[in-house]
């Protein structure tokens, strides 16, 4: 047991070193100074309180997406449709705000309803994938992928159609909401403790849900062997749908936060790829809730830290993507290698 934990750590370390090495190689080919680049990423992410709060802002939706995905992965489902679920969450949230912004309701209530609306939107969109899978025999990867495109189209249509800015429609999104409908942030910062709190509560909830409840155990059973789970009395397709709905709730919440905290309006790329990034985080932590928060933080830091690469080093900021992607691949590779060695020993 102890032994396997150590070898596990060693293999993870090798994966990190290989990913760093590969990224360095990419930079050398691009004739960029690797050490400077890494230094800039570190300084750019945790070099100052502003940077750290930027990382936390980016961490929130990523952690929420990962949280949701932990549930679907546990149920053995590849919820690649999470991007669309975030988007529809943001759309629902915007919709609630648009409906109520002229009303006399207190802003706090409107904000609360907008958050709930976002969660509902995400859940419904996720359920659609689940229903397609359960009753239509459409694999959730293909269904989710298709629905991502549909969600993007709905989003664009709203921004350039019914919800366009007075005068001219623009890629910069719908007209911003009044400041009373912004979720409160720390003074002088864009960081909202509300959003951060919700994300942390979510991951803690899901940790306990998956670890200590009947629901979590049954979900695991469905994910690992649906046939046997059914014979043991678990209503399998209902649990699959529930996993989709729950994941959709967290994805929708992430979408709502993007609207209420970050952009204060609906923009075309409202999900910002956090859903896909969440998939990578979930894979990297081997679907264990315990490590989701720190690894998501690391990924968010890479994202923020690479923002200043173009300014300082004339490097594209996608460098962080290279590092994130190779990291996931190398970790998966090391897991494979370890299993292979395990069989031989």
């Amino acid at each position: 047991m102890r032994n396997s934990r150590w070898t596990n750590l060693i293999f993870q370390l090798i994966a990190v070193i290989l990913a760093l090495g590969f990224t360095t190689l990419v930079m050398l080919i691009a004739k960029a100074p690797p050490l400077d680049a890494f230094k800039n990423i570190i300084i750019g992410s945790i070099g100052s309180w502003t940077k750290i709060s930027d990382v936390l802002i980016s961490w929130t939706p990523l952690l929420l997406a990962t949280t949701g995905l932990l549930i679907t992965f546990t149920a053995g489902l590849w919820n690649i449709g999470i991007e669309g679920q975030m988007m529809i969450g943001a759309v629902f949230s915007t919709w609630v705000l648009r409906l109520l912004q002229e009303s006399t309701l207190p802003p706090a209530l409107i904000l609360g309803l907008a958050i709930l609306g976002g969660m509902l939107g995400g859940a419904l969109w996720a359920l659609l994938t689940g229903v397609l899978k359960t009753f239509g025999g459409v694999n959730e990867i293909f269904g989710g992928l298709g629905l991502n495109f549909v969600a993007t189209s709905i989003n664009l249509w709203l921004i350039f159609g019914p919800w366009k800015r007075p005068g001219v429609a623009s890629m910069s999104g719908t007209i911003p909401f009044p400041e009373t409908l912004w979720l409160p942030t720390l003074p002088g910062s864009r960081l909202s403790l509300w959003a951060l709190g919700l994300a942390l509560i979510s991951i803690v909830l899901v940790y306990f849900l998956l670890r200590g409840t009947y629901f979590g155990l049954r979900l695991k059973a469905v994910g690992k062997n649906a046939k046997a789970a059914y014979l043991l009395g678990v209503p399998t397709w209902q649990y699959s749908l529930a996993a989709f709905a729950l994941c959709g709730i967290f994805a929708g919440l992430a979408g709502a936060m993007q609207v209420l905290v970050v952009y204060h309006r609906l923009i075309p790329s409202i999900s910002s790829g956090y859903g896909y990034l969440g998939l990578m985080v979930a894979m990297l932590v081997n679907y264990q809730a315990l490590w989701a928060a720190p690894v998501a933080f690391f990924f968010a830091a890479l994202n923020i830290g690479s923002i200043q690469l173009p300014v300082v080093l004339k490097l594209d900021s996608t460098l962080s993507g290279v590092l994130q992607g190779t990291l996931v691949l190398f970790v998966l590779l090391m897991q494979g290698a370890r299993q292979k060695l395990g069989i031989r020993n």
Partner: peptide, 8 residues
């Protein structure tokens, strides 16, 4: 902060 397509 958008994710480039290659990660997908």
């Amino acid at each position: 902060m958008t994710i480039p397509p290659h990660t997908f």
